[in-house]
């Protein structure tokens, strides 16, 4: 097919509805919120939530995870809009709250170890945690990837990583409100490490999943 005839064919379908990245981000956040409400309705919030809210570490972690979810949802959709001038730092901004959360967990782990190394002991796998973490990863994660794919991701690896970061952040946020297990080793081994691993997996799989 010559370029001229290709242009003629394409120009017949000129009309289109523009799609804003904000809409993609809001739909992704709304979906995960609905999903969280459903899971919360099914499992109930943790009974000591009102006391925990007064614990500054808990509150800081909750806020960091909330910010991480909001930023990763928004930026993952924004970088899916082709723009050669989009600043490189934009994609890294989304990682700041997540890194803050990771650092706070590492700091808490270190403090606990300073108090007494015996306090850090491996715990048995908590199926509630794993099950809900995976559910968040699969459903809001897949929905966010779909939202990104509806745009035109020209940085698919970063978009993939941010979509997974969004899913894991919302998953961790939800688990902090639902799960009563605050043991630092559990948080580190079953929340932080899977988040890091799945985000890296999102980076690796992004170009395949978001091909257009």
């Amino acid at each position: 097919m010559s370029n001229r005839s290709l242009i003629e064919t394409l120009s017949r379908e000129a009309e289109t509805k523009t799609r804003s990245p904000w809409v993609g981000a809001i739909e992704g956040i709304a979906f995960s919120l609905v999903f969280f409400l459903l899971i919360g309705w099914f499992h109930q919030l943790r009974p000591d939530l009102m006391e925990k809210i007064h614990d500054p570490w808990y509150l800081i972690n909750l806020i960091l995870l909330g910010f991480s979810a909001l930023l990763s949802a928004t930026i993952s959709c924004w970088i899916a809009i082709p723009n050669l001038r989009s600043p490189r730092w934009m994609r890294l901004v989304a990682f700041i709250p997540a890194v803050g959360w990771a650092l706070s967990l590492v700091l808490m782990l270190y403090q606990t170890w300073l108090q007494s190394p015996a306090l850090i002991h491996p715990q048995e796998m908590d199926m509630f945690c794993v099950q809900n973490f995976m559910l968040f990863l699969l459903l809001p994660g897949a929905f966010q990837l779909y939202q990104i794919k509806r745009l035109a991701p020209v940085l698919p690896a970063w978009s993939g990583a941010l979509a997974i970061l969004f899913a894991t952040s919302t998953g961790n946020f939800a688990l902090m409100l639902l799960e009563q297990n605050d043991a630092i080793y559990h948080q580190f081994a079953w929340h932080l490490i899977p988040t890091a691993l799945f985000t890296m997996l999102g980076y690796a799989m992004g170009p395949r999943l978001l091909k257009w």
């Binding site: 523009t18 804003s20 809009i81 082709p82 989009s86 035109a152």
Partner: peptide, 20 residues
């Protein structure tokens, strides 16, 4: 053509096209 719905009218066209 496939990405034409992602063009933001308030932004310049060329950086959008060159990114694609």
């Amino acid at each position: 053509h496939k990405a034409r719905h992602t063009y933001q009218p308030q932004r310049p066209f060329k950086p959008w096209m060159f990114a694609i």
